[in-house]
Nucleic acid binder design. Structure first.
Lengths: 352, 352
DNA sequence: TTGTAGGCGTTATCAT
DNA sequence: ATGATAACGCCTACAA
């Protein structure tokens, strides 16, 4: 005598579990939730869990979110995923968030404020619980507004002027210090800086660090030897170096704002028949992948990408858990990776 | 006489809009939804829209999803975000999905089946409406199961044996054909292949295309000149080339399964004091970024990354809209980018 | 054309 | 310890 069985083709719901275990849905809910499980008789709980298991019950996160107003998601706002700097950061973030029960939405803004606004709007409408933002500019009305509205966020790599937000950045001062010390140690005295965009905190702090480092080494700080790039990109790096070369001031080494800017220099060297490092030494920043296979392999300042992501994840979790905690920021120490793009300055130090 | 105003600190809801417009929430709902707007008096609709606008109403997608059982999200399953192949593909996907009202969740599996299963589970529990999968292996129980369960998906770059799923791939046959023809044109007759993993369809199809191309050019197909790499990675490329070199069979050129495998060869050249292309010419596949700055700049088969993503997005939308449509697959034409890693074969053709 | 009512699946708050 | 009930915000037959 086969027992009749009604087959539901949709996913099993809480009430199915409850029915099977012979309890009320509310009880099943309590039994299933580790937080509230001790409110329920151990035997009952076991029965419910077995029932859930047996029919493959998975709670519907949408219904849960509607009720609890929590989604277990955070947004990741990245300026440009094709910049190889970010994947390891993303990885670090995920490795921290996943065990805490959060998932991350990654969005790409392509350095376009309009696109950024739309993307952030999409994230908010999907009720993310917090934001990790890598697109900060020094003046950033959108982020300022979000902050005022109480959106929880953590900045990565860059900061916003006058906004007290938790952030994780590399220690630019230390990193540029390493780069300059390395070049000075090689005998360079005329060192140029291809600065990143000065509307980003990182562009500014690296430029400032560069000036300080020159002074520390007793070198003159010639403003003509610092040129700003409009973006953190190869093409802007190339433009910057052309301006530097056309400026007529002699220099034997370049500290680039980041690796992409440094790689842009390589294009100009090719254009003008110059060779690196013989004509000009170059140092990058970030230690992006594949630098060891470049022509020449690029000397650079390495930063702990993965750890930056992991720290950002931790800060965001803290911010979500304790909204009133005073914003901490984390500074991570860089290190220098010496490769073949730097070499001792020519003896005729005034050359080039 | 200021009108009293009750201030809600939470997001405005449909009922707030309705109240402000002096209509029932149901009417407001209809007015707000373009699909049902013509059911409502044009004036009323206008009033509702203005009311919504004025208080910045955004429908709560969670409540909507609970009701409609649709989420407007799809999952993107990527083996390794640090592979620069993927960002432009992701971009293409997003550019197609966004206008259609969908957002994409990106997850990273790191080539780890366990992690993949967990990530896919997370996506499904968040009720994504479809999956774009770039991690397919030729035998892939997880994907087979998902397919049986009716999960809508599109494969990118790789396929699953015996599973009729829509897919978007580069035309491997044509691409490898270009590479081999180029090398033959340069006089190479002993050409090796560093094949990608044979558990991926791409690895197999490129290896098969390689054999066919040799035959087409009347060259002997020496099995000892094909070596399989365990992953699509630099380190496996390096291992493969070492095995090839240690095998004692002469060859003057290598067709690598992809760019990363090709770059792995560069490491071995450095190790063994060989120079590329003088000792061995190398061709890659994919045209990943920065190849032009490598030492030497890598000749490679370029594929339209962005278009691959865009096509995948379109296929998925089709699959969602017309679930019963017969699975189409799209093959995109590659092109050859000649750089400095390939050069005419040495006159002494039997050398090396 | 508009309003009514019920429900999507879960959980929080009562009461028992 | 468990059950009943309502509510999260929205949508949609159905009724008016």
């Amino acid at each position: 005598m086969a027992s009749p069985k009604i087959v539901r083709m949709t996913a099993p719901r809480l009430r199915d579990v409850a029915q099977l275990a012979g309890v009320h849905p509310a009880t099943a809910s309590r039994a299933l939730n580790p937080q509230t499980r001790q409110q329920v008789n151990a035997d009952t709980a076991r029965r419910v869990l077995r029932a859930a298991e047996s029919i493959g019950y998975q709670p519907n996160p949408i219904a849960r979110s509607l009720k609890t107003a929590r989604t277990g998601t955070v947004g990741l706002v990245i300026p440009d995923l094709t910049n190889p700097l970010f994947p390891p950061i993303v990885r670090g973030i995920e490795d921290v968030l996943t065990p805490a029960g959060y998932n991350a939405w990654i969005v790409n803004t392509d350095n376009d404020p309009q696109r950024e606004e739309a993307q952030v709007e999409a994230l908010r409408s999907r009720q993310v619980e917090g934001l990790i933002v890598a697109t900060a500019r020094r003046t950033h009305p959108l982020l300022a507004r979000l902050h005022r509205q109480g959106v929880k966020m953590v900045l990565v790599n860059r900061r916003v002027d006058g906004l007290e937000l938790p952030s994780v950045t590399a220690d630019d001062d230390a990193g540029i210090g390493l780069a300059v010390a390395h070049l000075v140690g090689l005998g360079h005295t005329r060192i140029a800086h291809l600065a990143g965009p000065q509307h980003t905190s990182t562009g500014v702090s690296r430029a400032r660090a560069f000036r300080h480092a020159l002074i520390d080494h007793g070198l003159p700080d010639d403003p003509a030897l610092t040129v700003e790039c409009g973006y953190w990109s190869e093409s802007e790096g190339a433009r910057g170096l052309r301006r530097l070369l056309d400026g007529g001031r002699a220099f034997t080494a370049v500290v680039a704002g980041n690796d992409l800017i440094a790689l842009g220099c390589y294009d100009v060297f090719a254009e003008r028949g110059m060779t690196c490092p013989d004509d000009v030494s170059v140092v990058g920043f970030n230690e992006m992948p594949y630098l060891d296979k470049m022509r020449p392999p690029l000397t650079t300042v390495a930063i702990p990408h993965y750890e930056i992501g992991a720290e950002a994840g931790r800060l965001l979790l803290d911010t979500i858990d304790e909204p009133d905690r005073y914003p901490r920021s984390v500074l991570l120490a860089p290190s220098l990776v010496v490769r073949a793009s730097t070499t001792p300055a020519p003896c005729d130090a005034a050359s080039r």
